[in-house]
Design a protein around this nucleic acid. Structure first.
Length: 452
RNA sequence: GUGGUUGUAGUUCAGUUGGUUAGAACGCCUGAUUGUGGUUCAGGAGGUCGCCGGUUCGAGUCCGGUCUUCCACCCCA
């Protein structure tokens, strides 16, 4: 048999038991909080028909979609001519692709299931997505996205609820010192109109979005290079650098863009949100590159770690228009799961919470196995995790096994224990051990469980 | 997609102008210890030097290609 050198596909990862413990712990917190705010989860297929996905992410984005080769004789519909036309060939030999994000599948789902769901529809979705990007720091070809959306509503209560949800969530994850930054595309549009470059709106948004990374000096230089008017550049930078309370910022910008109808609309929207929830920081330098956002946009950053944004999102119109469904505005937020996992990976608090009430049942002779099964059953009925070594290992090796698997307690079953009905419970962290009845061991383990 | 970078044991890495049998640490297995791990000591297993081709008497080492790793750009999460 030919041996294959084991290897991972580019940009993909395995998650071992240690990593999965943290990932699942974090994901459960996410799910709990989303449920707390009345969102329900859906899942959609990994594979979508190609035409559902293409045309949504721009030309660059479409290139990053992983296409799946048709099964069987995938060349049967192609002619000699097709082989020279790559784009045409692709659609002839591949009709399915891996999903690129969770937003487009949501739009597809809502469009297909209007009879089953009630509008406004609140859903969350945690699933992997795939992008044929070149991997680099913190970026993979397969990664989890976690999206929460309201679809079919324009209510500003959504923003207010989302702000609250975000703070609750990060509080539970013990990620503190975060800012919820809010802005509105209509205000940015108003600025663009007032400063006389409305036709370069998208271009300027992408550039503003990068200020964090490149700084104001480079930003100014780039604007010069791109032949923006000098007076406009000065005014723009003055606006972006303005400091003050949210109210001061609103009044300041209102005065500047008062001649833009769109701009005034944006200001009205911010004021509406402000009446419901003031727990945000208005930031005109927040732009978010994505072109489908039309109104509120927001982002959450950690002030402690310079790790980039932890989540971001915004309000959009007509996400479902492509599928022939009109009047489906919505608002969504996407959490950078991988970044959050990374942030919590080194957090000891979380590591301790995970494994506290677990016991390895260790036997000194195979003839004690029936007794072990009896004890295991009692412990498990009381919600204590029990592991048993399946093979006839010496005690020494069983203790090593407990260490390796991060099991904090070992319950030893031997001759003495069976005769006296007092069993040895060994704490693997400090090496202490004591003899107790099974009932006492159960109550001890249960009290550990309550401590978390 | 553009530019750079990496690849040798399960893992992290040494390996001299190209020269005998490719090394270390950690991990793994066995024993010192027949009921005590995380410490110590002794021994052992484990390699197609990413892959394909070229130069050479001789290649882990030089050359070309390819794949891969990591990083930056574009863009994004």
């Amino acid at each position: 048999m030919n041996k294959i050198k084991p290897s991972l596909a580019k940009g993909t990862r395995d998650f071992g038991p240690d990593e999965m413990e943290i990932r699942e712990y974090v994901m459960n917190i996410f799910k709990d909080v989303f449920n707390l705010y009345g969102f329900r989860s859906i899942q959609t297929p990994s594979i979508e028909n190609t035409e559902v996905l293409t045309g949504n992410y721009g030309e660059e984005g479409d290139k990053l979609i992983f296409r799946i080769l048709n099964s069987g004789d995938f060349l049967k519909n192609t002619s000699e001519k097709d082989l020279n036309d790559q784009n045409n060939l692709k659609s002839k030999i591949s009709s399915k692709a891996l999903r690129y994000d969770l937003t487009v599948p949501l739009a597809r789902y809502v469009s297909m299931n209007q009879d089953k769901i009630s509008i406004p529809f609140k859903r969350y979705q945690i699933q992997p997505v795939w992008r044929a990007d070149r991997p680099q720091k913190g970026r993979f070809r397969e990664f989890y996205q976690c999206d929460v959306d309201y679809i079919g509503t324009n209510s500003k209560l959504c923003e207010a609820e989302i702000i609250d949800l975000v703070y609750t969530l990060f509080d539970k994850l013990k990620i503190t010192d975060i800012d919820f930054k809010l802005n509105n595309r209509k205000i940015l549009q108003g600025i663009a109109e007032t400063l006389n470059f409305p036709e370069r709106f998208n271009e300027i948004c992408i550039m503003i979005d990068k200020i964090d990374k490149i700084g104001f000096d480079k930003f100014e230089k780039e604007l010069n290079d791109k032949k923006f008017e000098l007076s406009s550049i000065k005014k723009l930078i003055k606006i972006l650098k303005f400091k003050g309370s949210n109210t001061e910022k609103i009044n300041f910008i209102e005065d500047i863009i008062k001649n833009s109808n769109t701009g005034i609309e944006g200001i009205k929207e911010i004021r509406e949100i402000d009446e419901l929830n003031e727990n945000y920081i208005l930031d005109f330098s927040l732009a978010r590159g994505l072109s489908y956002y039309t109104s509120s946009i927001f982002e959450v950053k950690s002030n402690k770690e310079s790790i980039g944004s932890l989540c971001g999102g915004g309000r959009y119109e007509n996400l479902t228009e492509k599928f022939g469904v009109k009047n489906m505005p919505g608002i969504g937020i996407s959490f950078g799961m991988e970044r959050i996992f990374e942030l919590l990976d080194c957090n000891d608090n979380i590591q301790n919470v995970i494994n506290d009430n677990k016991v390895l049942l260790s036997y000194l002779d195979v003839k004690f196995i029936p007794k072990c099964l009896e004890i295991a059953n009692k412990l498990r009925v009381n919600n204590i995790s029990v592991d048993l070594v399946t093979d006839n290992f010496k005690l020494k090796k069983q203790l090593k096994y407990a260490n390796k698997n991060n099991i904090p307690y070992v319950l030893i079953v031997g001759e003495d224990e069976i005769n006296t009905n007092y069993f040895t419970l060994k704490n693997m962290k400090n090496g202490e051990q004591e003899k107790k009845s099974i009932d006492d061991i159960i109550s001890k383990m249960k009290s550990i469980n309550k401590n978390e």
